[in-house]
């Protein structure tokens, strides 16, 4: 019978044990009241008690203001406090929805709301589609073996770290009459273009800047999704002689779908809420060419001489409804796809 070899405990492990020991002691101490609490409340009760502070904060700072918003939308007058405001029923909603033809904002009583709604819809469709495609392409490129990969990933992520106001100011300096872009075009014999004053260009740059500013965030999510796909799937496909395009459509995209759903959902919500960058970049102009719903709500509720909080609240409720419907549709589509794949 041979003697069992004695396990050698390394210095590093001992040191780690020493460092962890106080934490273990602390956890043991916490264990005492937790056991008492669990005996008293049961397992579910403890979970509820743990969640309660967070739910309280959520309730006070999110749910309660949302509830107040609904109440404000049924009131009128210039007063700030709800108890001093006049109940007007559905008047604010009727004002917003009073249109000869919804396709023509000029026929609507609150034409700026409908212009803002149209602009927002256009922005959401173009920006989200473009953002998802560009983010996906960027993630696919950054996922490949390449030189200075960390550097390139940082380059694409850098704009995410900037404040939206800074982003807008940088681009404003680039795009103004005497800005960098015109300074580059003039030597080529091209007349200076008023990029932020011509309607189509203003919308183009609003979308472009929004994509530039947020691209890194969505790329990062997709990159994480790509890295979670097992490499052996690609190796097997390669051995079977699968083309790159087929690998992309049959392996990458289906397995990336959960990440794509998250990206589309977040991009969609963020696009509907677009405000800060565009407000600083174009101020909603020229005219109302880049006026979006949140700016309309802000101006109606806060930047008028008589702050029309009722109308602004009603507009924000309508916007929230659209957002909820879009989110539900998105989630339904994702769930249906998942069910189909599981079958």
């Amino acid at each position: 019978m041979t003697a069992k070899p004695k396990r050698k405990v390394g210095v590093r492990a001992r040191l780690a044990g020493l460092l962890i020991a106080p934490a273990r002691r602390a956890m043991d101490l916490i264990d005492i009241p937790m056991h008492a609490l669990q005996r008293r409340l049961g397992t579910g009760g403890v979970a509820a008690a743990m969640l309660a502070p967070n739910m309280l904060v959520f309730g006070v700072f999110v749910l309660f203001p949302m509830f107040l918003n609904v109440l404000y939308s049924f009131t009128g007058g210039g007063a700030l406090f709800l108890n001093e405001r006049v109940f007007v029923g559905t008047l604010q909603y009727e004002t917003l929805l009073d249109c000869g033809s919804y396709a023509d904002p000029a026929t609507c009583r609150e034409d700026r709301f409908w212009r803002a709604a149209g602009n927002t819809a256009f922005f959401v469709v173009i920006q989200v589609v473009a953002l998802v495609i560009v983010s996906l392409m960027t993630a696919l490129v950054l996922n490949r073996e390449m030189r200075a990969r960390g550097f390139w990933r940082a380059v694409f992520f850098f704009p995410v770290l900037l404040s939206p106001v800074v982003v807008a100011l940088i681009w404003k300096w680039i795009l103004q009459r005497n800005g960098v872009l015109n300074a580059m075009l003039v030597p080529l014999g091209i007349e200076p273009v008023l990029w932020l004053v011509e309607r189509q260009w203003a919308m183009f740059w609003a979308i472009f800047v929004a994509i530039w500013a947020h691209l890194g965030f969505y790329t990062l999510i997709l990159l994480a999704g790509l890295q979670a796909i097992p490499r052996d799937l690609y190796e097997a496909a390669e051995m079977d002689g699968t083309s790159r395009w087929r690998a992309l459509t049959r392996i990458t995209l289906p397995l990336l779908w959960p990440s794509l759903v998250v990206v589309i959902l977040l991009a969609l919500i963020r696009a509907v809420q677009v405000f800060d960058e565009v407000f600083v970049l174009t101020g909603g102009g020229p005219g109302t060419a880049t006026l979006f719903l949140v700016q309309y709500i802000y101006e109606t509720g806060l930047a008028q001489q008589v702050r029309n909080l009722g109308l602004a609240s009603a507009a924000s409720i309508l916007m929230a409804l659209v957002l909820i419907v879009l989110t539900l549709l998105q989630l339904l589509a994702a769930a249906r796809r998942e069910r189909r794949e599981n079958r």
Partner: peptide, 10 residues
Amino acid sequence: PEIWGSVSGT
């Protein structure tokens, strides 16, 4: 238009 036409609202 850079002054009156460039922004929106008030």
